[in-house]
Design a binder for these strands. Structure first.
Length: 413
DNA sequence: TCTGGGGTCCTAGGACCC
DNA sequence: TCTGGGGTCCTAGGACCC
């Protein structure tokens, strides 16, 4: 089996775009964001600044850190353009996120040269046409290609020859493997496993004991060369959700209802736009102490009406709060809809839900809600999202992430 | 001013069916 | 009276990724 899988990853993407747009930022530690670091340049990473970090902490680590607002349209445009460069070589492209994709070039080497040559060309073109650094890993499987691109960073190319895979992996730290995060790393460290080489010689059964069946299987897959390599170019989302960190607020209707309405509005609008109603509604409440609790319900029929989703979410949140009577303060609310219908061109039924006439298909209120959603969707299509809504202006969200940034993270449904 | 927001997948237990 | 196992679905929690 030859090494024909590529993993391409734009380096410090948002920060690189900002440095591209404003030359005075080049070579400097910068962070996109404000209250929270959404992305950091390599210069900032050298100080320990990381994505997801509170802005204040980042400033402590790096006093000369420059914060920039974020050119979200440009992120989307340049991310798309980079992926398109890869698409010029093969249709077998699996996009993982705005700045990252797998590709299988097995079928196009006769046209464009070896996988290593193709990878080098992709890097040159992205550099020449978009002025952005991109790292590429080339290997026999997706997992190995991903590890290779991490090793290649920043702005590099690493090809893993199938004959020397074990040597390549041997000394690399386990956390470079997909699915090995802080918790797993700590557990492995307890049994003296720090490198992938050590992991490979650890018996599967002992990993299973430590980390569960999937982990044992994963190691076996790597060791026995059964790691997946298919490129899935048309993956559909399995869920859609939204959340809002609301600071510390009392767990009362006045706070909860408008927040859930806003979240449900965003989610349901996306679901309707793609005709993908869902059957399972999950709600998450995070308390002041950062402990979070979830509740979910699976309906007989899928939904995507804003008010129905809102009401179901409210009932679930109420059920949580009843169970935690001592928690008076909440800091985050989230809604997610899963079990999405594959293809639903039909006008949907309303759920035979928990209770209440408004959710029944035949009733006047149920139909009225459906009509209202349709009308609002149309007006927003023409005049923009904020032209109309459910009066969610008085939302208790002060320093949240900009909506454009949220949209970048949304997966195509 | 103590910690963002969008996702995927795995696990474990229980209900239920055959 | 006592008993098996497999499969599927649902729920809650958690780890992880970008």
């Amino acid at each position: 089996m030859k090494a024909t899988i590529l993993h391409a990853d734009l380096d410090a993407f948002y920060a690189s775009v900002e440095q591209l747009l404003d030359p005075s930022l080049r070579g400097k530690p910068i962070a996109v964001g404000g209250g929270v670091v959404l992305a950091a340049s390599y210069e900032a990473k050298a100080f320990g600044v990381r994505g997801g970090m509170p802005g204040r902490q980042a400033r402590e680590l790096c006093p000369q850190l420059t914060f920039v607002g974020g050119h979200f349209k440009d992120y989307q445009r340049l991310g798309d353009a980079a992926i398109k460069v890869i698409g010029d070589f093969t249709p077998l492209v699996e996009r993982i996120s705005i700045d990252e994709a797998f590709a299988d070039v097995a079928g196009c080497t006769h046209l464009f040269g070896s996988p290593a040559e193709i990878a080098a060309t992709i890097r040159q073109r992205v550099r020449a046409e978009l002025s952005l650094p991109i790292s590429v890993g080339v290997a026999r499987t997706k997992h190995l290609a991903k590890i290779a691109s991490q090793v290649a960073k920043p702005d590099g190319l690493v090809v893993v020859d199938p004959d020397t895979e074990l040597e390549f992996l041997h000394h690399l730290p386990v956390e470079l493997m997909w699915g090995v995060g802080p918790v797993t790393m700590a557990r492995l460290a307890e049994i003296g496993v720090q490198t992938i080489g050590q992991l490979a010689t650890t018996p599967g059964w002992s990993l299973e004991q430590l980390l569960g069946p999937a982990a044992g299987e994963k190691r076996a897959a790597l060791a026995w060369n059964r790691d997946p390599r298919e490129i899935k170019s048309h993956r559909r989302a399995r869920s859609a959700g939204a959340q809002s960190a609301i600071g510390r607020r009392p767990a009362v209707e006045r706070v909860i209802r408008p927040t859930l309405l806003h979240l449900a509005d965003r989610i349901a609008t996306r679901l309707r736009a793609k005709s993908r109603p869902g059957r399972t509604v999950t709600v998450r409440v995070r308390f002041a102490n950062l402990r979070s609790v979830t509740r979910s319900v699976t309906l007989d029929a899928p939904i995507f009406a804003t008010l129905i989703l809102t009401e179901l979410a409210e009932e679930l949140v109420r059920a949580i709060l009843v169970n935690y009577p001592d928690e008076k303060i909440i800091s985050l609310l989230a809604i997610s809809v899963s079990h999405l219908e594959e293809n639903c061109d039909l006008e949907l039924e309303l759920p035979l839900g928990l209770e209440g006439d408004a959710r029944r298909p035949g009733t006047k209120r149920g139909l009225a809600r459906q009509a209202a959603d349709g009308a609002i969707d149309k007006i927003r299509d023409r005049f923009g999202w904020n032209s109309i809504g459910y009066g969610s202006a008085a939302l208790p969200n002060s320093h949240s992430v900009p909506d454009e940034f949220r949209r970048l993270a949304e997966k195509d449904l």
